[in-house]
Design a binder for these strands. Structure first.
Lengths: 256, 256
DNA sequence: CGCATTTATGCCGATTTATGCACGATTTGG
DNA sequence: CCAAATCGTGCATAAATCGGCATAAATGCG
């Protein structure tokens, strides 16, 4: 497909403008290029879809370089993650050993655990460890190593060495994307490698994802979807593609 | 009507303001951004719902991540710890490898580090690791192991094995008590053992304590006071007893 | 070349969003 | 216990967004 020259020029200039000014307004851009605001909005929509900027009311903002940090992601769509978290928690039984992978949804799950539940929790993510320490009945095992700032967890060789000595009953896996064909995917190579190991060591695998992850895929494959034991999704999500795969699917319903 | 600041930018600025000032007032923000107080209140309400701050009458306060027993201690006499923290930070130079021991004062020190400082940080404390991850220039090494809920950090044999492989330039040690005779002491046996190892591995040792710790002692000895390289205390503390021991003493003065 | 198809764009109407204002309820400080 | 400050809610408005449709130019193909 050939892209129109003017369009490409516009988007390139918008990209520069975003970097230098830190923000762009649809009105200004429309005036500057002599096109309608609708056109600009379409540009911004495309660029946002391509991961080049973040749309906001009135214009767009540059995307935090290299994706957003874990603590930032935690606060995004917190309500929906809480819904998922409660559903996921209901599948956890006393006495289990559970591995918590690095993921903003998993932070919510850790926080949503009942205070007195007795279990052994393993994690490579400081933020999750801090949340788990709150609960009086949980024995927390921390996996150390060099921390990857993107992922927000220890995922290098040292961490893998420690992970290899553990055999959790359940791996609560974070996913950057989940797709019938591509399976579960991650943004970073090393992260994918660690996740693969965590899954390999665990008896069961649970994945909880918000609707926007479904049907998308990130660059690095983790595991095929069938390897999941349980899939937790929001109510109203189209999950027809995942039926009849032998996966237990839990639909989390928002509660008032 | 002229589209002024975009909502998102406002909230981002408010977030920064919360981190640096420790609190924000709705009236001030309204004036500063040129919007009504209602709008600010709505912003704060959203941010509180997203877990980014805690609403209080007249404005909002920053929310400590989690709220563990350790973070509870963090919020106690937060102002004085911040004073100590700034003084302690001034002794840290670029390129160093620094170990952060488990301690509420050390959480404050980690948070007070300049955003772009380039150094390698080692810690066995998830809460501190989470704080360090926010700083762009820091390489964070996490020490894993079974977490002691009292202490809020990994201090067992596995953690000690990892600690033994590191040789930090500086150990920022937390103290439950400091006394001329008893030296530095801790409440827990295992904690004292780990602290001893951390000190042994490090070239220099820095201790920052609030006034209430001085002259008191806890059950388990860590190190004699002379082993400290630097001691950071609040202004107005009686530190006569520690003079002439060859220790560098820094008196932290409150700043406006 | 002629014609179907795609693509970029503009325009219109319906909907959503951000914001301000008014009013009654609630909290705070003395 | 009162006055002042602050809060929450409902309503109004203007701006921004989205989706569909039309147009015109560019493109592809026989």
């Amino acid at each position: 497909m050939l892209t129109d020259l003017l369009l490409r020029q516009r988007q390139t200039i918008i990209k520069d403008r975003l970097k230098s000014s830190g923000r762009v307004l649809a009105v200004d851009l429309a005036k500057e290029f002599g096109v309608s605001e609708d056109t600009i909005r379409r540009d911004l929509r495309d660029m946002a879809a391509a991961g080049l900027c973040e749309r906001v009311y009135g214009g767009a903002l540059p995307l935090a370089p290299g994706g957003t940090s874990l603590t930032t992601r935690v606060s995004e769509s917190a309500g929906r993650k809480l819904t998922l978290a409660h559903a996921a928690v209901s599948t956890i039984r006393e006495g289990m050993t559970v591995f918590f992978d690095a993921s903003s949804t998993n932070v919510a799950i850790a926080q949503a655990l009942p205070d007195a539940i007795r279990l052994t929790a393993v994690t490579n993510t400081p933020v999750i460890a801090a949340a788990l320490m709150e609960k009086t009945g949980i024995e927390v095992i921390l996996i150390g190593g060099k921390i990857d700032r993107q992922v927000g967890a220890a995922i290098g060789s040292a961490a893998q060495r420690e992970m290899a000595t553990l055999r959790p009953d359940l791996c609560i896996l974070g996913a950057c994307g989940i797709d019938v064909d591509a399976g579960i995917t991650a943004f970073e190579y090393e992260d994918a490698a660690f996740k693969r190991l965590a899954v390999h060591q665990s008896a069961d695998v649970l994945v909880a994802v918000t609707a926007d992850k479904i049907g998308t895929s990130a660059p690095h494959a983790v595991i095929p979807t069938e390897r999941c034991t349980t899939l937790v999704v929001e109510a109203g999500t189209s999950i027809a593609a995942f039926k009849n795969m032998g996966i237990r699917i839990i639909i989390a319903k928002e509660k008032t």
